[in-house]
Structure formats: structure tokens, C-alpha cells
């Protein structure tokens, strides 16, 4: 029983990371039709930004509010990089999706290489507030606290993004744009501003995932974002390509399947099961990739 509880909570923690990366991907894809390969780099930048800030930024550190400040710094850097990339490199290629995807591919290679060039290819130990290392007993299982931090953050982000989409004018524009981009422009709305916004939001979530992933894994390395990105892509496809709630459900599904199969079958089987899950979903509903944002 305690194993099941531990696996479930750990799976949900992993799902939280997937959701943070995948929600931004699906917002960007849904609104702009761009598959953002640079998203993994945003994650890496967030992780390294937090790590750097905890050592160098005045007031920041690896405990308490100092750590919160370090994370805020990492997220801010990720957000700024994402917004700048949209403005400088994606926007000039407006509506040219293939080229936009190619540019994000180039960015994913170049940005990760730059991080590697600057801080080396080897993993760095990540600053972790001490309480995240302790465990809490849940139904007889000793669950590390960082799992709760991951899950809590993802839930807050999910609620915030749903509220944003539901109650703000930008949210309205994004929901409408996902459905029919050209009709939004035909109503006199400059939909490109929403593009920059979703890139910034996606960059912020990915950077947050980078910081949280650093806590979860205990260390950071330049390639981390890319390996997480592939599973985030799978989550996005299973979740329906452009639906936030769909993405959340798919993230939970993928996180749990992966944890349980890796534990009960063999290491690596979980990863394979996720791919099989993707194939099954696509075969069952090839056109079922709905485009409703809710």
C-alpha cells in the first residue's frame, strides 16, 4: 500500500513537471501553429538562472525567501528570453510555420550549446531548501516533500491559467485564436500581441519547471530540458494539442503510467509504455485531437 501511495505521489510530481512544460507548448501550438522545439531550452535557462542567482544574486540563496527570490529570477530570465525570441525571431516569419519550427530547432541546438559552453556539460548540484529533502508520512508512505511542492505549483499554475483564459480579454483572444486565428484578425484584433504573450507565459512555466526539476532531481545539466521536452510533446499530443485541461489530464496519465510501469515492470518500460499510450490514442482517435481550449 505505501509503495502504491509513494508511486502515485511521485508520478503526480512528474506529471506536474510535464504539465508545466506541456501547457506552454500547447498554448503556443494552439494559438500559433508552431511546435516550439526551443521550449526545452527555456527550461534549461530557468534551471540555470535559478542556480546562478542562488549563488550570485544579492539577497538570493538556497533557503527560505532567498530561494524564492532565486526562482523568481530564473523564471524572469526564462520569460524574458522567450518573449525576446518571439519578437525577434518568430514574429518576422509570421504565418510561415515551417520556417518558424526550423528556427526553434536551431534555437534548441544553439541555446543548449551556449549553456554547455558557459557552465560545462557536467551536472551541477542544485540548491534545495532543506525542508524539501525531508519526508511527510502519507498513509504509511514516507513521501519526500518536494513532490508536494511540484504538485502544488502545477495546480496553482493550472488554476491561474484557466482563470486567465476565462476572465481576461487576452484570455478571450487566445481562446478565440486557438479556434480560428484569421477570424480574430478579421475582428480588428492584432493577434500577434497574443503570440508574444503566450510565448512569454510558456517560457515562464518552462523556466519554473526547470527550477522545480532541479529540486526534484537534485542537479541540473544542459541536456535536461531536451529529454523532458519529448515527453512533454507526447503529453501535448495525447491531451489534444491545444487544450489546457486536456494537457493536465494527459500529464497525469503519462506521469502515473511511467512511474508504475518503471517500478513494477522494469526501468525503461515506463518510458516505452508512454509511447505505446501515444500510439494507442492516435490510432483510436486520429482526428480526435480536439482544438478546444478550456
Amino acid at each position: 500500500m505505501s509503495t502504491v501511495v509513494l508511486l502515485t505521489i511521485t508520478g503526480l510530481g512528474l506529471a506536474a513537471l510535464y504539465f508545466l512544460v506541456a501547457s506552454g507548448l500547447s498554448l503556443i501550438f494552439g494559438l500559433m501553429g508552431v511546435l516550439n522545439f526551443a521550449h526545452g531550452a527555456f527550461l534549461t535557462i530557468g534551471a540555470y538562472g535559478t542556480w546562478w542567482a542562488s549563488d550570485h544574486l544579492p539577497g538570493a540563496g538556497s533557503t527560505g525567501w532567498g530561494f524564492v527570490l532565486a526562482v523568481v529570477f530564473g523564471v524572469a530570465v526564462g520569460t524574458a528570453v522567450a518573449a525576446l525570441i518571439e519578437l525577434a525571431l518568430i514574429r518576422p516569419l509570421y504565418e510561415r510555420h515551417i520556417e518558424q519550427v526550423l528556427v526553434t530547432v536551431g534555437l534548441s541546438l544553439a541555446l543548449v550549446a551556449l549553456v554547455r559552453a558557459t557552465w560545462g556539460a557536467d551536472p551541477h548540484p542544485f540548491p534545495r531548501p532543506e525542508w524539501t529533502q525531508r519526508t511527510t508520512s502519507v498513509l504509511g508512505a514516507n513521501v519526500p516533500n518536494d513532490r508536494f511542492l511540484l504538485i502544488g505549483s502545477a495546480v496553482v499554475v493550472l488554476v491561474a491559467v484557466l482563470a486567465f483564459l476565462r476572465f481576461t480579454r487576452f484570455g478571450l483572444i487566445i481562446r478565440a485564436g486557438v479556434e480560428n486565428r484569421s477570424m480574430v484578425t478579421a475582428l480588428g484584433i492584432d493577434v500577434r500581441r497574443a503570440f508574444t504573450l503566450v510565448f512569454a507565459i510558456g517560457g515562464a512555466f518552462a523556466a519554473l519547471a526547470g527550477a522545480l526539476g532541479g529540486i526534484y532531481l537534485g542537479s541540473i545539466s544542459p541536456g535536461q530540458g531536451t529529454s523532458l521536452l519529448i515527453f512533454a510533446f507526447i503529453v501535448v499530443v495525447i491531451g489534444g494539442m491545444s487544450s489546457i485541461t486536456g494537457t493536465a489530464v494527459a500529464a497525469v496519465l503519462v506521469g502515473l503510467v511511467q512511474q508504475f510501469a518503471n517500478y513494477y515492470a522494469a526501468s525503461g518500460v515506463g518510458d516505452l509504455s508512454v509511447v505505446l499510450l501515444l500510439a494507442a490514442v492516435l490510432l483510436a482517435r486520429p482526428s480526435g485531437l480536439t482544438a478546444r481550449l478550456a
Binding site: 479556434e179 477570424m183 484584433i189
Partner: peptide, 19 residues
Amino acid sequence: REVFGGLTVAENLTLAERR
């Protein structure tokens, strides 16, 4: 027509408000 099916009638009109 291309009304936004996932938006309510009121939201469709709010969206159409030009500044």
C-alpha cells in the same frame, strides 16, 4: 459564419468590440 463555437454568445460579442 465562423462564430467562435467554444465561446458564449456574450463572449463572441465582447471579442468583436473594436477599440
